[in-house]
Design a protein around this nucleic acid. Sequence first.
DNA 1: GATGCCGGGCT
DNA 2: AGCCCGGCATC
Length: 506
Amino acid sequence: MRQRNGLIAGAGKRLAKRSIIGTRVCAPSGDDGKLCAGIIAAVKTAADGSETGYSIRFDDGTGGRREYRATELVGPGFQTLSDLRLMAGQRVYITFNGREISGDVVVHRPDTEEVRVSIMPHGHEGSIEVIKKLDDVRVLESRKSARLMDQDTDFARLADMSDRKRSSSSQNAVEISGSRKRRPSSSQDQDESREEEMKDEDDDNEPKEEEMTECTAALVLMSLSCSPHSPSIQGRITRCQQPESLSTSPSTSSEGAFSCRSSPSPPLSESSSSAAWSGRGLPSVVDEGIGLTDDDFEDVPKRKKSDCRTVFQCTWPGCVMITTTVASIELHVRQNHLGPRLDKSLSDDFTNDSIDDHEEEFYYTEVELGAASSPPTLSHRDMARPPHEGKGCAPNKMIIIYPEYQKTLIIPRPGSACPMNIPSTSGNTAVNWPFASLNGQKQIKMMYQNLGGTRFPSSPMRKARGETKKCRKVYGMEHREKWCTQCKWKKACTRFVGSLENAQLA
DNA sequence: GATGCCGGGCT
DNA sequence: AGCCCGGCATC
Ligand SMILES: [Zn+2]
């Protein structure tokens, strides 16, 4: 989220590699040379894989598209503002009084790298002109901080605001992604979820692209409920890009004990999804800044490069099956644990993906071999697992060790026959666990959504407060200066760290 | 109410 | 990255 500025045109060059679809860029939409903001809706690639053209969909409400070459685009990975000259009248965005404000270029002096911009600040009648360094001028609206947002009047924002007011219903399941549900006040979470009108009413989509956008949207939704590094996301990406191909191993991930279950997510199911992704049918008001940033994709490929060998281990309680391919582990899970699919063809068609498709994913995990940091917890998990029970029937308790804190959690399961059986519609106890990274970087998150009201006593999402007294308690508010820095910053204390559990972590 | 600290904003 | 703080969960 913080990396949003990756979107700002001119804010440093970023390679326009990977999936740049959805990236916000600017391009000359008319003959006047003025740049208009839009998003990359499609990329044309030559046979050799090089990108030769970009189809840009403009924000201007017409939904019109045009194709451009890379050299014509302005934005991350393409030209920066210093590469060109802004025309008078060009709409730009600058920061004025700590807030982003739009204005029109009066004149741009390439020699001095200065731009005179005419703006109409709030509470000012009439416009004023300011001179800004080119560096401080953007042609793409940046994402504003929540704090700065409230007074904005531009209609995109208004739409945004009223939008965020919309209460729950379909959105709910998406919002529950965080470990702690935050008030809408911190807008970000939801902004994200409305990720793009990528899949909007536009009808002339070539099929391939359609697939991509859906994939993108799915990715985003997933990322809301799962840790961004969740293998399941990666799995989906893989699947998405190469439908039908099951044998492709999802990228090598160094983390993720189990695949995570995307939240029960009714919203993922057809009806609501299109609404959610289409910006709720708002004509073409662009949910500014919501386009996928590079960063949204970044982690995924990054992970890929750890080229260690991976195997896939069944995580079904009591099962120690290990295979070398996704396909085989999925097959194993399906055949040995899940049983035959009901009412569904056996096809693994992604487009057909609905709530309980790919259930296999949730019962295996990738394990890196040879990685120096072989997940210590894996073995623990095995040990913690009840020794009995083979197939089909699960114990009614689940014992989970959370790698990060090395705590064991026993979750009583309401007599369900399958582990983590997630009720789809009238669900009562949904368990969602984006798993902690095994390398301990990410916070373990686990969610319970319990419509019945009874929450599980101690949510593992949050480190149960240890008995250890921390700086604050020890030194008291009056000796704040003695606190460790982390405490001063209201972060997890580093001085009085937990106890043995944490000690073991090393 | 106090404490711990996550998530996120600002510089 | 350092600093700060809102707000939530837990004690
Ligand atoms: Zn401390």
